[in-house]
Design a protein around this nucleic acid. Sequence first.
DNA 1: TCTGTTATTGCGC
DNA 2: GCGCAATAACAGA
Length: 152
Amino acid sequence: MEMKTGSCRFGLWRVRVVWSENLIHKVTFSRTEEESFVPKQIRLYLTAKNMDFFPLKSIALSDGYPYREIYKTVSEIPYGLTKTYSEIAEIAGTHHRTVGVAMKRNPTPLIVPCHRVVSKSGIGGFTPDTGIKKALLDMEKQNAKSLGFIID
DNA sequence: TCTGTTATTGCGC
DNA sequence: GCGCAATAACAGA
């Protein structure tokens, strides 16, 4: 299988994607990347025109991948909503501390929506910049609200 | 093995 | 509010 790389704009950041076929291998953030082709679902998601990545899927969900259960649980959080580290831990049958480690090591943010996992007292962390997490949550919340998925 | 790492939480003051 | 201990699970040596 052939491995492809592309980069897409999100605010001040560039989202760099590595994939092959429908399998996403890696998603990283950078400031300097030139824009180039990425899968349509990702481009649309980043401009609030798409709510899921089907049929794309993350390598983090494949058999034998470390923290697979945690990533699977996180993937089930609906667009525009959040869960806490403790809630994820309870569902996945592990410890909230472990959820933090798994999020930090998540190879594919966005695809596995780790930005929807927040702490009880605040937004929680995000590498390389919590500003990205805030921007993603704002975008999702606003979009979901305007489509009537969230009422508040 | 053993040590370091970690995007949390809850309790006591 | 702040400091701190508890504590799961993986990477790297």
